[in-house]
């Protein structure tokens, strides 16, 4: 599952986000941190900006509505809850009160995907990308690692409209260095000519990179694209990355329906006939405990399975053109 180990110790994107917010808050008077008893900000000293940290308690609908009210009054709320609650329980308030008004609210959604692990399926969010990307005005961002979290947070705060920032729970390894991160633009991490691996989220990107290593040993070269922005999707980067077989394998930590892979398929199929193999978690609630990485692999996503799919795709293309 892991690629060549990154030098930096694994860090949690939500903790990096928290530390970035603590730094930003005193200097950015429009920012207001709205918490819902997440515990994430325990012990954080906001200094002179302490009045702009507001814990509304366990009340996610009110959290989103209040964020909308604050935004309508010129503030930029950073809303903190778990991804499952942002994208399911509170989604009507996100849709009507925040997205409809195109308000500058940043929803920091932790515990996304299966990163809540043993907390179980009530705390997993495997529908959030489908839900959030369906909403007009919403920008959907999935940082690939801790460093990317801080960078993409800063870029997201410069936007005028709502942003869904998908964060995890535990530490994940840093991605290898690549071109600078630009919101809305794919980051090309590997170049090849046979197939494109388009990945979203920490472990999917790592698995895709490791799959590319495996394939290289077999004479198959892969483009590896890191798509940290699901909406707006960088369709032109995807199109220009397509190899001779016009095939993309998408990899994500989300249910198979409606997520990142679906977004890629929708975008590319509008341009030309492209094969999109969506590697995502199966259409079921996860009934077992396990770490984020364990549950992703249990769902059939690993370097080995990605490489297998790539091999099949390339062979079928080569066979078909002989």
């Amino acid at each position: 599952m892991t690629t060549a180990p990154a030098p930096a110790p694994a860090r949690s994107s939500r903790e990096v986000y928290r530390d970035a917010v603590a730094k930003l808050l005193p200097d950015e008077p429009r920012l207001v941190v709205l918490d819902s008893d997440t515990g994430l900000f325990g012990g954080v000293d906001f200094g002179s900006a302490a009045d702009r940290y507001l814990n509304l308690g366990i009340a996610e609908h009110t959290l989103m509505g209040a964020a909308a009210g604050l935004a309508r009054e010129g503030r930029i709320p950073l809303v903190n809850t778990m991804a499952a609650f942002a994208s399911s329980r509170a989604v009507e308030a996100v849709k009507i009160d925040i997205a409809m008004g195109n308000l500058p609210v940043l929803i920091a959604a932790t515990h996304s995907g299966v990163s809540a692990g043993h907390l179980g399926p009530t705390h997993h969010a495997l529908e959030d990308l489908a839900v959030m990307r369906a909403l007009p005005h919403m920008t959907v961002v999935v940082p690939g690692d801790a460093a990317g979290t801080e960078e993409l947070l800063r870029q997201a705060l410069a936007l005028d409209g709502p942003v869904y920032l998908r964060l995890g729970r535990g530490a994940t390894p840093d991605l290898p260095a690549g071109p600078p991160l630009r919101l809305g633009k794919a980051q090309q991490l590997r170049t090849g000519t046979d197939i494109t691996l388009a990945a979203c989220g920490p472990y999917p990107v790592l698995a895709a990179l490791e799959a590319a290593d495996l394939l290289e040993g077999e004479g198959i070269t892969a483009n590896v694209l890191h798509l940290h922005t699901v909406k707006p999707l960088d369709t032109s980067a995807l199109l220009s990355s397509l190899g001779v077989g016009d095939t993309v394998i998408t990899v994500e930590e989300h249910w198979r329906s409606g997520g990142f892979g679906s977004a890629v398929a929708e975008a590319l199929s509008a341009v030309r006939p492209v094969r999109v193999h969506r590697m995502a978690l199966p259409d079921e609630f996860v009934p077992v405990a396990g770490s984020q990485r364990y549950l992703i692999e249990r769902g059939g996503i690993s370097a080995r399975t990605i490489a297998e799919q790539a091999r099949k795709s390339v062979e079928s293309h080569r066979g078909g053109t002989r």
Binding site: L54, T62, G65, A67, A68, G69, D97
Partner: peptide, 22 residues
């Protein structure tokens, strides 16, 4: 605000009132 789905306004009011207090 857009309204029509019931049960939304008071939460927005909380936000407006928080903003006014800040």
């Amino acid at each position: 605000i857009a309204s029509g789905s019931l049960g939304h306004g008071l939460a927005l009011g909380v936000g407006y009132a928080l903003a006014n207090r800040l």
